[in-house]
Each structure stands twice: as structure tokens, then as C-alpha cells.
Design a protein around this nucleic acid. Structure first.
Lengths: 251, 251
DNA sequence: TGTTCTGATTGATGTAGGTCAACAAGGCTG
DNA sequence: CAGCCTTGTTGACCTACATCAATCAGAACA
């Protein structure tokens, strides 16, 4: 009895909490999507540990050996690469249920930093074991491939944003994207807190911080949204959507 | 005998030539990388057909059902997506040994056009069969994942290029990238023909055609390269590389 | 052999967004 | 509480690239 309690104690206080996909409320968004009960229990054995990460801490850094991919359990992350001339450049933001770290598969070395934007938890999925298990469970394999493909499509969408959209449109697209992702997680699609700084937004969108600030102000003046620092309220989603279809100035 | 000859005839004239990875001089660049002889012969049964594609024709179009990924056997391709406002935007160029079509995995619908820039041949790899086979052959599975990861890394590199580099630097980076890929295929890294138009280059690089033209002229004036229409000769690769590390004007 | 068409180059001018600088609002620390 | 530091906003100005327009070289064709 006492031993059991101690173990429980350890499980709860240790860096690694025991994770269980089968019990997770994110399972419809995350890796286990489309798996049966039985298959899920196999995955439970794979997903070793949950890790707590304090705000500002990193899960992995550029140059770290790749060994696992990660799912956000709670919290918010950014990934950033290093430009040739040594600046950091945000390449993505990850929220609950989203998976990151797949950049490391090709070279077995990570080429971005993954940093928590708030106190967060991630589920660690050792990639070798994930591959082994996906050889047993076709639907898991298929879903893994879909997740990687989704990342490809997402990045290509970002390429399009960066090469065709004007500053204000980029910001609108960014907010609409967040809105959809919050909605998919049961949060309000019209009112939310930005976890990232203007600096990080501007880096992600390929703009300067002042330009992002001006874009927010301009969208506010046009009554499309309310901004108070990091608190956002979308007032006219149809109009914001319409912005995205704009004949893109410098087409 | 006669029958055999007829079969041979058909095999050679039909749209689908029989492909054999084990015989292919691209096998060290392409899907079979790292497979043993025995494993290769399994892959041979998978890679159903080679397809000839005339210049300007497409392998798949936006909205087409996804069923396979493709490897370039000979020739040159571009992939392009459609912007919100209906313009085409080049998202990549593929040369011999490179694999494309993975964008379709996530939704089972392609979201780009794949178009031959010259008369080309592709090897068709039915994705369901590829998945099935990769459940038998761990090294094949691993390599498939690496290929997808490499695409993610490539796209993220492109995001960085688009959001941090100035026009001239983008063109230089583009040329250096082509140079490396030609070199890896045994072609000259300093002298090559561009298969794509200035229009396509500018779309890919998120610039206007005039800007690309001026960048070429300027690099020529600086004696970094020679340009004659689509014929390129790189005169000073170290200087071109140095350009990429430039403190990136609007950092 | 001229005619037209397409793709590329070059010049002149306009503008979106970068740069620089001032300032305001919190949040921390002594 | 003052002083400081970080983050965001706003204004004035500047520049890299887009835009518009003219010209040219080949390729396609009559």
C-alpha cells in the first residue's frame, strides 16, 4: 500500500507524468485519431511520459539529436530556426493536440528550437518505437503520414502567405488561423489571448514589429476587431475572411 | 518467342514502361536509398509503371484524388498552388530522383498541380502499396519518413528565404540550390540550363519578373555569373555563398 | 522575308513597409 | 514610492521592390 502510494507520488511529482492517450480529451485532434480502443491501448504503452515545461524553456534545441516527436498536451509553443546571419525566425506556433519535432527525422538532428510560450506539458513519443508500432497498426501508420503531410501543406500555405499577401492581410490570416484552431479545441473563435509577443508574430509573418502593430491598429480602426495588448476580439469575421480573398495588391 | 517480343514491344511503347529501382541509376538519390538487394526487389514489384509526360502536361491537378506519390525519372517538374484570389504560385521545382505528391496524403486530395517543364518520365508509386510494403521493410519505412521530413525542412527553409532575404539574395540562393542539386546528380555545378521561365522563378521566389531580371543583371555586372537567357554560368561561387550570409538588410 | 507573338531586359516612377525615434503603459526591483 | 526595463504604439522619413511602359531578341508562322 505504502509503496503504491509512493509510486503514485513519484508519478505525479516527477518530470514525467504517465500519459494515456486513451484517457486524453485531445485524442480526436492528436496522434490517436481514428484508432480503435484496442489499438489505443497499444499506443498508451508507447507514449512514455508527459513532460512539464516552464515558460521560456525549450523541449529541444537546434543541433540536438532527434529521438522523438512531441504532442502538446497543454500550453503553447513556438518553433524557431536560425537564419544564415544568425537571427532567430519563428516558423510555427503549436497548441494543444498539435505535434512537432518532425523536422528532425530527415537528418536525425533538430534544426529548430522548440520553446514553451507558457507553462506547458508535452507528450513525448519516441520515434523509433512509434515507427515500430505503426508497422503493427496500419491506421496508426496512415495517421502518422497524414500528420506529416499536413505539416507540408501548412508550410506551403505559409510560403504562399509570405510571397503574396500584404502586411495587413497576413495579420488577418494569422488571426483567422488561430481562431479556427481555438474553435476546434472548444474555445471561443472570436475572443482569445495571444500567447506570443508582437516580436514573435512579426518574425513569423516576415514583417517588422511596427508593421504588425500598425496592422492591428488599422484593423481596429476599421472595426474588424478589438485589441488590448494580447487580448483579441474578432468583431467581423466575414469581413476578415473577405480580406484574405483580396486581389492581393502585388499579385 | 514471338509473344515475348510483342510483350517487349508493348512494354516499351505503352504509356507505362516497366520500372525497376534495382536497375535505376538514381537509386542512391531516390526512394530506395539504403535498401538491400533483396529489399530492392520487393520495391521493384511496387513501382508499377513509368509514365512519359510531355512538356506542359500535368501528372495531377488540384482537386485530383490522391493515390500515389511520384519520383522524377528524367526531366523537370514544377508544382504550383492556387492563391485565394486565383493566381498560380510555384511552390517547388523537382528534378531527377526527387519525389513529389506528398501534399495529397493528408486530405487524400492534391492541392497543387504538378506540371512537366520538359518532356519527362515519372515513376508512379501507389501510396497504399508503399505503406503496406514499408510495414514489411523497416528501412523503407524509415526512408519514406525521411523523405517527408526533408520536404518539411525544405519548405521551412523556403519560408525563411521568403521572409528574410532581399531580392538579389533570393535569386542567388535559388541558383546555389540548383547548383548543389545538379552537382549531386553528376552535372556541372557551375554551368546549367534553367528549365523554368523567369515568370516561374519570380513566382517561386515571391518576386516580380522584372525584379528577377534585374537581379540576374546585377549579379552579372558584379561578375558573379554569366547569364544568357536560360543558360547560367556561376563565376564566383564563394562570393555567391557569401551573399547568403549577408546581414540581411531588413533583418 | 516580313509579321506577329512570347519572353526577357531596362528605365522611370510610385508605394508598402522598413527604419529611426519618441513616447506610453505596465511590471519589477531597490 | 521612484526608477528602470520591457513591450507596444505612433509618427516622420527612406528604400527596396512593385508598377507601368518601352524596347528587343527569338521562335512560330504565313
Amino acid at each position: 500500500m505504502r509503496e503504491n502510494n509512493e509510486n503514485l507520488e513519484i508519478t505525479f511529482t516527477n518530470a514525467g507524468l504517465q500519459a494515456a492517450c486513451s484517457q486524453c480529451n485531445l485524442r480526436e485532434l492528436c496522434l490517436p485519431l481514428g484508432l480503435s480502443e484496442g489499438e489505443l491501448s497499444h499506443v498508451d504503452t508507447l507514449i512514455g511520459k508527459r513532460h512539464k515545461v516552464a515558460r521560456g524553456e525549450s523541449i529541444f534545441r537546434i543541433g540536438d539529436h532527434f529521438g522523438a516527436i512531441y504532442a502538446v498536451k497543454t500550453g503553447f509553443f513556438k518553433t524557431e530556426m536560425l537564419t544564415e546571419d544568425g537571427h532567430h525566425q519563428v516558423t510555427g506556433f503549436q497548441m494543444a493536440g498539435e505535434i512537432f519535432g518532425m523536422d528532425g527525422i530527415s537528418t536525425e538532428v533538430h534544426n529548430c528550437d522548440a520553446i514553451a510560450l507558457e507553462d506547458s506539458e508535452v507528450c513525448l513519443m519516441p520515434f523509433g518505437e512509434l515507427e515500430a508500432l505503426s508497422m503493427q497498426i496500419p491506421s496508426l501508420q496512415r495517421h502518422l503520414h497524414k500528420i506529416m503531410s499536413r505539416e507540408i501543406v501548412r508550410d506551403q500555405g505559409m510560403m504562399m502567405l509570405l510571397s503574396t499577401m500584404r502586411a495587413e492581410t497576413r495579420v488577418a490570416a494569422f488571426l483567422m488561423n488561430l481562431s479556427q484552431r481555438f474553435a476546434a479545441r472548444g474555445y471561443s473563435p472570436v475572443e482569445f489571448h495571444l500567447r506570443m509577443s508582437r516580436e514573435e508574430i512579426s518574425s513569423y509573418l516576415g514583417l517588422k514589429i511596427e508593421t504588425v502593430s500598425r496592422a492591428f491598429s488599422h484593423l481596429r480602426d476599421a472595426s474588424l476587431l478589438e485589441v488590448d495588448k494580447k487580448h483579441i476580439r474578432l468583431l467581423d469575421i466575414p469581413a476578415l475572411k473577405a480580406l484574405l480573398n483580396t486581389p492581393a495588391c502585388h499579385s
